[in-house]
C-alpha cells in the first residue's frame, strides 16, 4: 500500500488537491496515514482565527490624517502624464480608445486596421488639442463677476475667512471646555460638539487649500487631529485619559494657534469690511 505524503494531507485538510476521494478511502484503510492526518488536523484546529482589534467608522479618516503629508508624487503612466493640460478630456478618451484598439488589433493580427486607427488617432488628437486650446477655464472663472461686483474667488475667500473665524471661535470654546473638564467625568457632550466641528473643519480645510490659504489649512489640519482624538476617546474619561489629551493639545500649542488664527482672520475680515465701498451683510454668525 502506498502512503500519502504530509503535503497531500495538508491540501486535503484545506479542501484542495486532486484525488480527494482516493485519499478519503485511503484514510479509512490506513492507520498510519490516518494518524498523520489526525495530527495535522488537530494542530491546525488549534490555530484559531485571531480576533482583530476593532477599528471604528472614523478609522479611514485617521489613516488619511497620518499619511496625507507623506504622499509622494504618483508614478503616472505615460497616458495619464500626457493627458494633463489642454485637451485633457479628448486626450484621455482617445488614449483609452487607442489602447483598446491596439490590443484588439494585435490579437487579431489586423495590421491594416492598425494603420487606419493610427491615422484616425493622430487626426483626432491634433483636432482635440486645436479645439481645446482657445478655451481657458481659469481665465473665465477669474473674469466672472460675482453679483455684488467682486470676483468669484474673492467672494469665496471672504466667505471662507468669516466662516473659519467663527468656526475657530467655536472650536476654541470646545477645547477650553475639555481643558477644564472635571475628572473623572463624562465628556460625551463635548464629543458630540467635536464631531460636528470635525465635519465642518474638513470642508473648510479643503476650501482653504483650494484658494491657497495654506496657513489657515494648516491650523485646521492640526485642529482636525485633536478633534478626531476627542471624538474617539471614551466618554467616561479618567484623570489619566484627560491628562494625556490635555498634554497632546498643549504639545501642539493648539489653543494658541487657534486663537492667533481666529484673531488674524477677524482682523482681515474687519479690514475688508472697512475697505468695502458698498455695505454688505456679514458672514459671521453667532453661536
Amino acid at each position: 500500500m502506498s502512503h500519502y505524503g504530509e503535503g497531500d494531507l495538508i491540501l486535503y485538510y484545506y479542501g484542495e488537491g486532486r484525488r480527494r476521494h482516493d485519499i478519503e478511502r485511503h484514510l479509512d484503510a490506513c492507520p498510519a496515514c490516518a494518524a498523520t492526518y489526525r495530527d495535522i488536523s488537530s494542530t491546525l484546529a488549534m490555530v484559531d482565527v485571531p480576533a482583530v482589534p476593532e477599528r471604528g467608522d472614523q478609522y479611514g479618516l485617521e489613516v488619511w490624517q497620518r499619511i496625507r503629508h507623506r504622499l509622494p508624487e504618483p508614478q503616472q503612466d505615460v497616458w495619464s502624464k500626457h493627458s494633463a493640460g489642454p485637451g485633457r478630456a479628448a486626450w484621455t478618451e482617445l488614449a483609452t480608445w487607442w489602447r483598446r484598439l491596439v490590443e484588439r488589433t494585435f490579437r487579431a493580427d489586423r495590421l491594416a486596421i492598425l494603420a487606419a486607427a493610427a491615422t484616425i488617432a493622430i487626426v483626432a488628437f491634433v483636432a482635440g488639442r486645436f479645439w481645446s486650446t482657445p478655451s481657458k477655464p481659469a481665465a473665465t472663472i477669474t473674469a466672472t463677476q460675482a453679483p455684488d461686483g467682486g470676483s468669484l474667488p474673492g467672494l469665496r475667500q471672504r466667505i471662507l475667512i468669516g466662516s473659519v473665524a467663527d468656526h475657530l471661535d467655536r472650536s476654541e470654546r470646545m477645547l477650553t471646555d475639555i481643558m477644564n473638564a472635571s475628572v473623572p467625568g463624562d465628556i460625551s457632550a463635548e464629543q458630540r460638539w467635536a464631531e460636528d466641528l470635525l465635519t465642518t473643519s474638513r470642508l473648510y480645510r479643503q476650501d482653504a487649500v483650494d484658494i491657497g490659504e495654506r496657513s489657515v489649512a494648516n491650523v485646521l489640519d492640526d485642529l482636525e487631529r485633536s478633534l478626531i482624538e476627542i471624538v474617539h476617546s471614551p466618554s467616561q474619561v479618567t484623570a489619566a485619559d484627560l491628562d494625556a489629551m490635555r498634554r497632546r493639545i498643549d504639545a501642539a500649542a493648539l489653543l494658541f494657534k487657534v486663537r492667533v488664527m481666529s484673531n488674524e482672520l477677524q482682523e482681515r475680515e474687519g479690514t475688508r469690511s472697512a475697505g468695502d465701498a458698498s455695505p454688505r451683510t456679514s458672514t459671521r454668525k453667532t453661536s
Binding site: V49, V52, R55, Y59, E62, V63, W64, R68, Q76
Partner: peptide, 26 residues
C-alpha cells in the same frame, strides 16, 4: 485618484482602511 487627485485617493483610503487593517493584523 490615478490622475493624482489626492481627494479621490482619500476616499479610497477611507473606504479600504478597515479591510487593510484586518489583513495586516492577521
Amino acid at each position: 485618484a490615478r490622475q493624482g487627485d489626492s481627494d479621490a485617493f482619500r476616499a479610497l483610503v477611507e473606504r479600504h482602511s478597515r479591510t487593510v487593517f484586518r489583513l495586516a493584523f492577521r
